Simulated scan of single mutants.
Amino acid sequence: MKEKESYIEKQKGIFGDTTWFTYRYEVNGMVYETSAGSLDICRKARDKWMKMMSVAFTGHRTIRTNKYALSVSLNEEVRFCYENGIRFFYIGCAVGFDMMAAHTILEQRKQYPDMVLVAVVPYVGQDVYFNKEDKQRYADILRQADKVVVLSEYYYAQCYAHRNDYMISHACRLIAYWDGKSAGGTSYTFNKAQKKKLVIHNLF
């Protein structure tokens, strides 16, 4: 992901005692500009702008329905998001639905090169218990992602929940694959997204 942040700091007011920032942020050819009395306010406004163009994914590690039908629905939903202004796609790098979503985005990025795949890793070594095939898929996803966010150097009890919180906090939409009854990370993320009033599309 090609990011560039720049700003001009000026003193304003009759006595030149007021600081004013003119801010510009560029990412993958998209440009956001604003101005405010502090750099922190400018960056918070930028984050809000990016959030309105972002979607997160959550789903079961075992695909329990027809994989081909799910793949078709997932492709349609990703394309719909893109056509409606979504550019940032957050995935949690787990096996199952997460990896299917990541590969869908990578395929569609060939047609829409301004798609941004953000891989959110809960801790270094997330793939330690993956089988050989999933380890390779995981490595390929991280290698091809536009941005990799690693939240912790080590595993800890709530690391997956915090990974899901991070994605929800950065998105305005959620694409889910949840059976509506199972407990666990997918249920947690789905319910958290509802409380945060994200737009949710469940593909189960």
Rank of each mutant, 00 (worst) to 15 (best):
K2H: 12
K2D: 14
K4R: 13
I8T: 13
K10Q: 12
Q11P: 00
T18M: 14
T22Q: 07
Y25W: 13
Y25D: 03
E26W: 08
V27M: 04
G29A: 11
T34V: 08
A36M: 09
L39K: 11
I41K: 10
A45R: 14
D47R: 05
W49D: 02
K51D: 01
S54G: 08
V55G: 01
F57I: 01
T58E: 09
R61Q: 14
T62R: 15
R64L: 15
T65S: 12
N66F: 06
Y68H: 12
L70V: 10
S73W: 00
S73G: 02
E76V: 12
E77P: 01
F80G: 14
Y82H: 10
Y82F: 15
Y82G: 06
N84R: 13
G85V: 05
C93H: 04
A94I: 04
V95C: 09
V95P: 03
G96N: 12
D98G: 11
D98T: 10
D98Q: 11
M99A: 09
A102R: 02
A102N: 06
T104G: 10
E107P: 07
R109E: 13
K110Y: 02
Y112V: 00
Y112G: 00
D114N: 12
M115C: 02
V116M: 09
L117A: 02
A119I: 02
P122C: 00
Y123V: 05
Y123L: 05
V124P: 00
G125C: 12
Q126T: 04
D127C: 12
V128Q: 12
Y129E: 12
Q136E: 14
D140F: 06
D140P: 02
D140K: 07
L142F: 03
L142Q: 09
V149Q: 10
L151M: 07
Y154N: 15
A157Y: 03
Q158N: 11
Q158W: 05
Y160L: 15
A161F: 13
R163V: 07
N164V: 09
D165S: 02
M167S: 09
M167K: 05
M167D: 02
S169K: 07
H170W: 01
A171D: 01
R173S: 09
L174K: 07
I175D: 06
A176V: 10
A176M: 10
Y177K: 05
D179G: 05
G180Y: 00
S182I: 04
G185C: 03
T189H: 10
Q194P: 01
H201S: 13
N202R: 06
